[in-house]
Nucleic acid binder design. Sequence first.
DNA 1: CTAGGGTTAG
Length: 698
Amino acid sequence: MIKMPKKGNLAAVDGSMMRNYLEFGDFMSAAKVFFVGFTRNYLLWNSFLEEFASFGGDSHDILEVFKELQNKGVEFDSKALTVVLKVCLALMDLWFGMKVHACLIKRGFHVDVHLSCALINLYEKCWGIDWANQVFDETPLQEDFLWNTIVMVNLRSERWENALELFGRMQSASAKATDGIIVKLLQACGKLRAFNEGKQIHGAVFDSTEDRDLSSWNSIISSYAVNGYLNDARDIFLQMNLQRAGFKPDSCSITSALQAVIELGYSMWGRSEEALAVINRIKSLGYTPNVVSWTAMISGCCQNENYMDALQFFSQMQEENVKPNSTTICSLLGACAGPSLLKKGEEIHCFSMRHGFVDDIYIATALIDMYSKGGKLEVAHEVFRNIKEKTLPCWNCMMMGYAIYGRGEEVFTLFENMCKTGIRPDAITFTALLSGCKNSCLVMEGWNYFDSMKKDYNISPTIEHYSCMVDLLGKAGFLDEALDFINAMPIKADASIWGALLAACRIHKDIKLAEIAARNLFRLEPYNSANYMLLMNIYSIFQRWDDVERLRESMTAMGVKISNVWSWTQVKQTIHVFSTEGNPHPEEGEIYFELYQLVSEIRKLGYVPDINCVHQNIDDKDKEKVLLSHTEKLAMTYGLMKVKDGSPIRVVKNTRICQDCHTAAKYISLARNRDIFLRDGGRFHHFMNGECSCNDRW
DNA sequence: CTAGGGTTAG
């Protein structure tokens, strides 16, 4: 038998029944308690709305209850109205929110901070940032909280300038910015390249008597670092504890500082040993890098294409008993993918499996990239097949994998399958598609995808896409069309565009167009020796030795250094590098002996040395000798000598493979019945039975 | 509304 409560307790009973219902998730019963209830206590009506919302009541229901209460003539307090405005935001019901707003103004309601905040959020989401800013300007009482809100909202809407301006105003109003705002503002400065504003924020933080947390300082360090003021970044790091007594950097500051330091090491000395030396100094100050710090170092090295140091840091990290996480693995796989370190990549793949990193989509994507760049497309595809929920980057990586092999048809099939799963392509997808076209010489398909990206997917082509098209048209022999295409481009042609055209002129032996392309290219990249070599190559084909000499002289006059050319191949655990600089390989004699044998073998099969590849006006016999010294030939030969029969030879070269080496490799694959994988500057060559997967266009 | 540092594809 339920005891009837005494009159004075009615409200309390309603309240507890309501809570019971709410706790069981029965919102509408809870509401009924109210509608049929005994009491008309306004405070309770209001708190009901709040509780309803905080127990996760359905937004539509809350709004219904609110309207019902409104009809009953209930007066609302600011908390209840805030709840209603938040509900409006959730439902994107700007119309009702505005009615509430109008009601507030009409009744001269005291708009408190939370209410303004809710209004600002509602207007920003439903109508745009300008109206949110207007609400802010019309709010009479601008407390700290509201300042922070309006700055945050502007940052969220990517109104960086607005946010910075508001920060200035809030300084004048002596409002205290939260640490989060400081962090976000500094990030905005980074995006804007607004270094002076960043410095002002630093000054404001430094001058104020407010205590800032580590994150603020850390982002200050980062903001100096990303703007290239690495010395300042380092000094702030080292002086942090001086600025506030007892204030010690944490692992976060170390990470920020380390990034600065790594870049400092590279930019000042161009070497990672010095970066490591500074890291050691940091350690001697008593700070221990954590997994994030190490990962930052590793990815920093990768960004500077210093893959060996990245791998070195990895072993050092393990020596110091810091466990890698999935982010570290991703960076490391990137370190292997860049220079095609297949064996190392396989090792890290095993490592990650042993340590339980399975089903990580980032790792899987990095694996696809690593295996395709390492020359094992089948394994890359296997990894791809095993991914249950394929994301856009997975598809993109896989497509790019097939593209660099020149397997355009497979790229198209992947694209169609991807679209069938409902994933929308992005700009990178089209780069993969167009790369597939250019490496397979599929001109019609290239045009179709190029037209389709804007028309069907509203993706504007970027310089990468234009570059693919120029490369595609040029390689296919449509040189004039390629030039027209460049002239019709809405954006300014960069070095990749003219470089693609120049390379095409080499294939199709068009010296007039080559000179036009080269003129533009040299203006954009005056110190890139590869460009000069390409033109020199074309002059050599036409035996124009005067021009070759002139070019060589202007290179000397300009101080263009011929960049180091190297090829390498891996035998067991060792990487053997063949380079135009530095010491020769210790087994050089044996290698040349084998190479002579090889050349006489393939001559019988029809190989003729392509002496046009030698840009010196010397005797033809001497030219043939020069050809033999090409690093890719040495690496291939060494592979043949050391890698057991039947296994493919894998060679990586940092620049484009030369035509003679390309021809020779085809014959070698035939003579010795070997698969030869050669990754050069731009793509993959798979030599097999006297043919190359690139169809002789690269 | 406050918490921010290191991950994948050209």
